[in-house]
Design a protein around this nucleic acid. Sequence first.
DNA 1: TCACTTTCATAATGAACACTATGGAAAGTA
DNA 2: TACTTTCCATAGTGTTCATTATGAAAGTGA
Lengths: 209, 209
Amino acid sequence: METLEPSVAKRLGRPLSFDRDKALNAALLQFWQTGYETTSVAELTRAMGITAPSLYTAFGDKESLFLECLERYANPGPKTTPELIAEARSARQAAQQLLELSARWFTRQDFPAGCLVASAASSGSVNSQRVRAALKKIRDVNRKALQRRAERDIREGHLPRTANAQALASMTMALVQGMSTLARDGVGQKALLDLARTAMRAWPEDQSP
Amino acid sequence: METLEPSVAKRLGRPLSFDRDKALNAALLQFWQTGYETTSVAELTRAMGITAPSLYTAFGDKESLFLECLERYANPGPKTTPELIAEARSARQAAQQLLELSARWFTRQDFPAGCLVASAASSGSVNSQRVRAALKKIRDVNRKALQRRAERDIREGHLPRTANAQALASMTMALVQGMSTLARDGVGQKALLDLARTAMRAWPEDQSP
DNA sequence: TCACTTTCATAATGAACACTATGGAAAGTA
DNA sequence: TACTTTCCATAGTGTTCATTATGAAAGTGA
């Protein structure tokens, strides 16, 4: 063992002729538009501008490529969504930011409409079990994070004792999922923002403890 | 033209050896579980208990079979969903019934979890454009029906003038879509019913005109 | 019984699928 | 320049896809 980090060490032989990062981005956009199972490797290679052998040596196989795209999609910044939820001023604030961000994110002109996690594999064959499990896990983790944040607010008196943390968290995440479908159906940004503001009436106002 | 109703007239030749209605139901359940593009004809014939040629002579092709399943799924009773929405006591009542019915339907033990319209083809290739358009149309029609019902309530004084009919309708339909995903992720009936009740806080109370 | 019509089971169709074997070209090191 | 390593392009692999050709079987009408 000469180096502990082979990825940093200078690689011998002919270097990659394409930008791995850009190719991954292109694959992400393709999956985002047309789903996981319903996107063929041929469509991926066309979108990425590389040939099939290059895809397989650089990314493994179709499943690994998708999971790497998903990782990039779900964690674009330094902090994860559960961390951002935990650190928000209140559960209510976290929910509001989640909804407003979704309204804006799902209707961006430079990206496919809707949410990859919501739409890439809402149903599928046995061949996509692992991918669907990975998507479900992201949804579960985010929902549970918001639920725990709401439970904390109830304990600390920022939300009334009668509030239902699970129901509030599930409702908020259901809205995020549903807004993705609406965005895919062509509903615009303003309509989704109005929706988000209207839905926040279901959250009890923050209280001082 | 001897008969106006050829389906009633005695058919010549060898009769069907399987129950067309039961086969259609089996196909519906299969599509419901594993989606449109992601369900193969081989899986369909296995679930329906018939061979491929029987499927094609009885139902046309895979797309026609799905559309017929969708028709049965979306219109099981004598009245359509938009009709039920229009005839409800109020827009608020319609929304509440929609949400509670969804909570119960999406978590029934004897059916696949979630909603066929929400999950069968949330994304897909060009081969499923017509199917996806048919699903979108159902979502659009139902959403618009609820929106019109809310607009009427505002006109007639049952909802405050400040209420946003489009936002209320979109929010309610987004919740239905999202509840389907939650049900598929394993969230139970009680949790979805709590969610529905919590979400109804976003609807202004009905008022006398 | 005998045409006639339609369905059945078997098997095969070409196309698309995910994935890879192979050999030469490219770019580094010595 | 010789050599090593890796990548790329071509062309395939076997499998599965949706769909159908074929001929025997099972009914109806005369």
